[in-house]
Amino acid sequence: MIGYVVQRILLSLLISAVAMVALFAMVRMIPGDPVTLMLGARATPEAIARLNAQMGLDQPVITQIGLWFSRIFSGDLGVDIWSQRPVVDVVLEALPPTLALTLAGIGWAAALGIPLGCYSALRPGTFTDQALSVVSVGAISIPPFVLAIYCLLFFSVRLGWFPVLGAGEDGDLADQIWHLVLPAFAVGLGWVGYLARLVRGSMIEAMGENHVRTARAMGLPPHRIVVTYALRLAIVPTVTMLGISIGGLLSSAVLVENVFSRPGLGTLIADAAQGRNYPVVQGGVLAAVLLFAIAMPISDLVIAWLDPRVRKSL
């Protein structure tokens, strides 16, 4: 068990390290001279020399990689080219709204999708089951950012029920939640369908397992069987999927953020990418990779906790 956990954490560390080197290589691979590109053709030689030294571009490559790593570990990701603020601050500021959006999106999707999946699994082949499965495919088929634009059009612009842009006033929790409703709906709807289908499939399988059949034979009430015994098993593929899909979730959050002009990691990276603000792109992507590297081993641990057979085999 401990060996397995260590192995997964090592893998996450390896992914993070590879990503760091790749991000380093990114700036090196920019066609042409990155400093001239960033400062424009009319920059003074002094400004160019200063930025060169600031980014360590006047040192040999190996030294630069070493420097880059030591800078990351000391929490120094460079300076935002436009605002001249430390990139770490800029990224840390953008992180909470993105996390809130991602968690709210997946949260309501799980709260609705998992019960729907169980409901279908208990009556396979009936009209309700088939109707739910068609609706699920429909929900999966609408790309989150298209859904976001439609929501923006109907609920914000036409009906005026929800705010059009931003994340709400600082410190005003109700206002922030108000701003979160539509984006979270757009991020999560596809996941409702997805989770419902996934849970339905594994639930049907779990209901046939020996211990669940024993529980039924012993006359336990159905809701107890489903929640205590079957769901615990049926939820495993869902947790695996969620661990793997954190990347996809972040990707859709990036797009939805842009539709609603919400501050966040996505808006930050997209704006920086358009303006060739390399240090911010590096910092933002690194933050996304780290989130992903943390989520993977956590989902592994949850699975081991849920399914005793997995725990024993480790």
């Binding site: 990347g247 990036v254 060739r276 792109v281 933002g284 992507v285």
Partner: peptide, 23 residues
């Protein structure tokens, strides 16, 4: 397998943003 798993689960749009910045 390690390469497949790592690239597969990466946040695509974010990787895309980085690549587009580059090229």
């Amino acid at each position: 397998l390690l390469i497949f798993d790592t690239t597969y689960s990466f946040p695509t749009v974010i990787l895309g943003l980085a690549l587009v910045t580059l090229f």
